[in-house]
Simulated assay, not measured.
Amino acid sequence: MRDKIVALTDNLSRTIVGKEKPIRLVMVALLSGGHALLEDVPGVGKTLLAKSLARSINGRFQRVQCTPDLLPTDVTGTNIWNPNSREFEFLPGPVFANVLLADEINRATPRTQSALLEVMEEKQVTVDGEARQVPKPFFVIATQNPVEYQGTFPLPEAQMDRFTISLSMGYPSEAEELQMLQKQLQRVKVEELEPCISLEDVQELQRLTSLVKVTPSLQQYMLSIVRATRTDDDISLGVSPRGTVALQRATQAVAFLQERDYATPDDVKYVAPHVLSHRLIVANGRQPQAIIERLLRSQAVEPELMAA
């Protein structure tokens, strides 16, 4: 499946300039069967990335612009009365898509935010007691502005725990921004992207990712990092067991993208700050990602892992 991965990466790079690591991290979230949280200021390409991904995999794209007056049924869908058939009919909400962009998710009320909990975890929504499956694959990219808090509702820990990866796009360099201007003149638009892989290919890539070998020694290394977050003085609330599972799945995805059928400590180190930091509640104003990087340096790697 190497050609599929290269084609997807190249297709995304046509519209997303100079963002190799964010593209790779989003692909890690997709291949591991999880979801991605993009925390960044407006205008750095978050929406463009989500649209480009949906086009590239020939999937259905839906966007929810989160506002305080957004209702849960605006996300999941609702039953409406059809006077002709004299019965209720289900009107699907935007979650019935392959790629869902929840823009500025922290502007929605907790009630609406919770509507995403079931679908992100169970890949289904329950309306009037009836469960309905969303399409496969189902991938959520949520965004929030980390510097603007007026009129927002911070995501609870249970919601943050649903995201496999958190990342920041960041401002482009001067050369990258110049390249963006040049591409604008060339009219490289997301609508012009041609699908390069199919939805079936994505599901097969996810299946193969789950087969990447993780040795017991590497699992013990991951556990040492996770459990260290639960006893560190700078952390009020450490990583949950769901976070441990997410770290292993993301590590497998990193290895798979490197064209390996086995994972290494370097794969763990690459992805751990993005998998674990948003799951922490820190004390004393510390930076979560810096804490995870410190814990990575403090945890010894077994000799057999180094040899592998």
Rank of each mutant, 00 (worst) to 15 (best):
D3R: 10
L8G: 03
L12T: 08
L31I: 05
D40P: 01
K46W: 04
T47V: 04
S52C: 11
N58D: 15
R60W: 05
Q65F: 06
C66G: 00
C66S: 09
L71G: 09
G77W: 03
P83N: 12
P83F: 05
N84K: 13
E87P: 03
E87Q: 14
E89W: 06
F90M: 07
V95Y: 10
F96A: 09
A102P: 05
E104I: 15
N106V: 14
A108H: 10
Q113W: 02
S114V: 08
M120C: 02
E121K: 10
Q124S: 05
V127S: 11
E130D: 06
Q133R: 14
V134A: 00
P135F: 04
F138Y: 02
F139G: 08
V140P: 08
P146D: 06
Q150L: 06
R162G: 02
F163C: 05
L167V: 08
Y171D: 11
Y171P: 10
E176M: 10
Q184H: 15
V188E: 06
I197C: 12
V202P: 13
L211W: 14
P216D: 04
Y221G: 06
M222T: 07
T229P: 03
T229H: 03
D233R: 11
D234S: 14
V245A: 08
A250E: 01
E259C: 10
P265M: 02
K269P: 06
P273Q: 13
V275R: 07
L280E: 02
R297T: 12
V301Y: 07
